[in-house]
């Protein structure tokens, strides 16, 4: 059995072995193996290519851009996605604009350990994919499975543009698979995580699993829920979403990020404008609450969508 976290480590090991242009730069990633052990033993296996960074996110991203200009393929590990904000300027204003301004490619991969876990509070829990997605010039991946964590990270480093790899901390140890995949859907293709005829749930990352649990709850009530795992939130596979809504006539978009704008709003907007006639009911969204992410598990468990709240939203939607 291999965990989501081990898959990320294995992918990085393969990248370093296969691509001499790749290197890893991040706080505590060297001998220590990273705050979450995503680079365990890699410094030993690849001497000089897994490098400890100072606590300087702006300079970490900036240096990656420089290395990319010189032909390398940096992987930057930000210790928590929340700490990418000091590097925000270099990400959105420099990495994301470089090719458009100069025709020089910027193939950097920024790993963002994202999302909430119990007791982590407002600064170790954030889901920032929607914020970054607002800016043109980046590919944004949000793997929900062990297989995708592996294959999409391999693909991320191969992509010639800046990639934000939003790996979910809640899935690190929780999620296990039999082994590593040998083939995968390409980036930009969504996956039907569960087939159903009554309602489409579009989601990504850890929320896929909450939605799967909610779908199981509804089986007893006679409902078949279809779940689309976006896999990549930029680009979004609009075709797969619309095809699913065409089958079910109902849409719920679920995300762990905050409710103003973001991925779920984008999904609803696309379905409303391109698939209005497919809908039998108004499309719905379910997101985290509109406050910072609370520390106490009682509050956190209510702040983010969970299987029971998703099931409740689905029941309401199915009754329309």
């Amino acid at each position: 059995m291999i965990t989501y976290l081990e898959a990320i480590r294995a992918a990085q090991s393969k990248i370093l072995a296969d691509d001499p242009r790749a290197y890893i730069y991040g706080q505590d990633v060297g001998e220590f193996g990273g705050a979450f052990k995503a680079t365990k033993n890699l410094a030993k296996e690849f001497p000089g290519r897994v490098i400890d960074a100072p606590i300087s996110e702006d300079a970490m991203i900036g240096s990656a851009i420089g290395a990319a200009i010189e032909g390398l393929r940096p992987i930057i590990e930000i210790q928590y996605a929340d700490f990418s904000t000091p590097g925000f300027n270099q990400i959105v204003n420099h990495a994301a604009t470089l090719f458009w301004r100069t025709q020089v490619k910027c193939p950097i991969t920024v790993r963002l350990p994202s999302g909430g876990t119990a007791g982590s509070g407002p600064f170790h829990s954030q889901s920032m994919e929607g914020v970054y997605a607002q800016y043109p010039g980046m590919v944004i991946l949000t793997p929900a499975t062990v297989e995708d964590a592996y294959s999409m990270l391999l693909e991320a480093v191969a992509i010639d543009d800046p990639v934000l790899f939003c790996e979910h901390k809640y899935l690190y140890y929780h999620l296990k698979a039999e082994g590593l995949p040998t083939e995968a859907l390409p980036v930009g293709k969504a996956r039907i995580a569960r087939q159903g005829r009554d309602v489409t749930v579009v989601t990504y990352s850890a929320m896929v699993h909450e939605c799967l649990a909610a779908a199981e709850e509804l089986v007893a009530e006679g409902y078949q829920v279809e779940i689309v795992d976006l896999r990549s939130i930029k680009p979004i596979d609009t075709d797969t979403v619309l095809a699913s809504v065409a089958r079910t006539g109902r849409l719920l978009a679920v995300g762990e990020a905050w409710p103003w704008g973001g991925v779920t709003a984008e999904i609803v907007a696309r379905v409303a404008s391109e698939g209005f006639t497919l809908l039998d009911a108004p499309p719905r969204r379910l997101n985290a609450k509109n406050t910072p992410i609370p520390f106490h598990p009682n509050l956190w468990g209510t702040h983010r969508p969970t299987a029971p709240t998703i099931a409740r939203a689905l029941r309401e939607l199915l009754r329309v």
């Binding site: 509070g121 407002p122 910072p292 609370p294 520390f295 106490h296 009682n298 509050l299």
Partner: peptide, 13 residues
């Protein structure tokens, strides 16, 4: 994480 604390469970440690 006491509700009576200065951070009311919203913040920790």
């Amino acid at each position: 994480g006491s509700r009576l604390g200065p951070m009311r469970g919203r913040e920790g440690n």
